[in-house]
């Protein structure tokens, strides 16, 4: 048993779970607490990964790479903050999707920076204060600590007075404005914070896989994260943790069927897609969700 958890296979899975926990918790912050269905989350993940990888390849120490990942992903969040104030519901979803695809087009076409479709190989191992994470186990511990910190951070946001206002805004934007809450400011902060957290996941991912290219940060990736959020329950932090864990592990048995790679990948997508549809129809609250998607209508009768 212990041997299994120490194997590279298990450690890889555990590290991926940590990364996806960060992604789903941060996306849940955005979906559950600002009410926007963000279909560009993979872009923030990618921006963080590229920022961290590029600086590491240029020889900067890891803590700078990490901060850069947070900063640039947060900057990406700021870019969709404006549409998130102006648009709502499905229009906002499609606008964030557009943002994600444009970001990916930039990753693919800014060859002088990102090497385009060739990707960035040989991303160095994480090291800070003279300590280098050489083994998978060490990396896992690091990823676990970061994931726990992010989860605590997001839980703290939600439980604080700031989070109380967020819940109020989610329930009734008009009433929140009437009692003096600047709902735009709150939404912008939430979107930027969520994006910045996704950047952290990107940094971990880049240094874990040691190779990144634009094909990782597609709409499919965002959908996978949305699946995790919906499965666990919108606006439930522990739900996102569970959702991410389940969905990282779910397709693993497929490996043992011995299918060709392309078939296995398609089957994986099919499982996620079917799960998403069934969840929406039969269990839209997810496992822990306290609340279904808000009906996006703040323009309704006053």
């Amino acid at each position: 048993m212990l041997e299994f958890f120490a194997s590279n296979y298990a450690l890889n899975l555990l590290i991926l779970i940590c990364i996806y926990v960060i992604l789903s918790v941060s996306l849940n912050l955005i979906i559950g607490y600002s009410g926007m269905l963000n279909l560009g989350h993979a872009a923030f993940f990618g921006i963080g990964a590229y920022a961290s990888a590029l600086l590491a390849l240029a020889g900067y120490p890891y803590w700078i790479c990490f901060i850069a990942a947070v900063f640039f992903a947060g900057l990406g969040g700021a870019m969709i903050a404006y549409p998130s104030l102006k648009l709502r519901g499905d229009y906002l979803a499609i606008a964030t999707l557009g943002f994600g695809e444009i970001a990916r087009a930039v990753m693919k076409n800014w060859v002088s920076l990102t090497r385009g479709p060739l990707g960035l190989p040989g991303i160095p191992k994480i090291s800070f204060f003279g300590l280098t994470l050489t083994t998978k186990f060490q990396f896992f511990i690091f990823a676990l600590i970061i994931a726990i910190l992010v989860v605590l951070f997001v839980s703290k946001i939600v439980k604080s007075p700031f989070g109380r206002v967020l819940r109020a805004i989610r329930e009734d934007e008009i009433a929140a404005q009437a009692i003096g809450k600047n709902i735009k400011k709150y939404k912008v902060i939430v979107v930027i914070t969520g994006a910045a957290c996704a950047g952290i996941a990107g940094s971990l991912f880049a240094h874990h896989i040691t190779f990144i290219d634009p094909t990782t940060f597609t709409l499919m990736e965002t959908i996978l994260i949305v699946c995790m959020v919906v499965l666990g329950g919108v606006a439930s932090i522990r739900g996102s943790v569970i959702g991410a864990t389940i969905l990282v592990l779910l397709p693993e048995p497929l490996r043992f069927l011995g299918l060709p790679t392309s078939m296995a990948a398609a089957l994986r997508v099919m499982i996620y897609a079917a799960l998403l549809i069934l969840l929406m129809i039969y269990k839209p609250n997810g496992i822990f969700g306290e609340w279904r998607f808000r009906h996006a209508k703040s323009k309704e009768a006053l």
Binding site: L37, D90, I223, V269, M270, L276, M280, F293, H295, A296
Partner: peptide
């Protein structure tokens, strides 16, 4: 049931058909 559940379902259908 609001705006987003059908949208998410539609995305699911879209991916399902692609994979199929």
């Amino acid at each position: 049931r609001g705006m987003l559940p059908p949208l998410i379902t539609a995305i699911g259908i879209s991916l399902f058909l692609q994979a199929l």
